[in-house]
Amino acid sequence: MVAFHLKTTALALAFAAGMATQGMAAEPTLDLVGPLSEYKLYVAENTAQLVTDTEAFVAAIKAGDVEKAKSLFAPTRMSYERIEPIAELFSDLDGAIDARADDYEKAEADEAFTGFHRIEYALWVESSTDPVQGYADQLLTDVKALDARINELTFPPEVVVGGAAALMEEVAATKISGEEDRYSRTDLWDFDANFAGSEKIYDLLKPLIAEKDPAFVTKTDANFKAVDDVLAKYRKDGGYVSYVELTDADRTVLSTRVNTLAEDLSTLRGMLGLN
């Protein structure tokens, strides 16, 4: 009886203590300036790369080279997927660049369906570059606009810190299902980029949280490694095999770890006083 009470008490006290820490918001410190600015430099490198890669991708489409365009599709997207927390702040460009067919009433037939996935549909399903000549030009204009807008943007600290979890949630909620690159089955490239983008934010913040919560760091490091170990099995020729080759067992491992990462990383904002 006493033992039972002691256990309950310990649990309740731990719970109450947890509530108290959450209620008493930590104040952010100047230590965040380093990680926040390093993150913008990382994003700037990626948008510059996105412009360069998109130029080559669009050139292949303009030249009517379906095979070359197919080979450039997945690698070109990676620099976009790495920086999605920031890129999707611009709703107009995000919609134009990266929307899925089912974001629109008429799906693939909808004229507002543009960008990477409309082109993906042309390359893999329609097997032609003809229907997307205009969309290709528009894509290049849009990524250049994105690059310019991001360079001008003062990054909101809470978006940067929250971005680590946002990327994981995105993978967990929509990407594991294979929704994103449904025509090309290049989903694993996007996973890699989303993980890299999330891990970049986490790595930059790690020195700030290592002292406060070493157990969190140990656990999160292990989860990132587990995800990477699964992905490593599917790497091929500097890229990834088709998403259909992912085994159910590995999909389950990925799903579990990604959900845990999403949940754990979502506490970063609170830990750093940015709720």
Binding site: P28, L30, L32, S37, L41
Partner: peptide
């Protein structure tokens, strides 16, 4: 608040680096 300066300070650091 200090929080309101975090974005501007980080942005200035980016500018200095670049």
């Amino acid at each position: 608040t200090l929080r309101k300066f975090l974005g501007p300070l980080s942005e200035y650091r980016v500018y200095l680096v670049m």
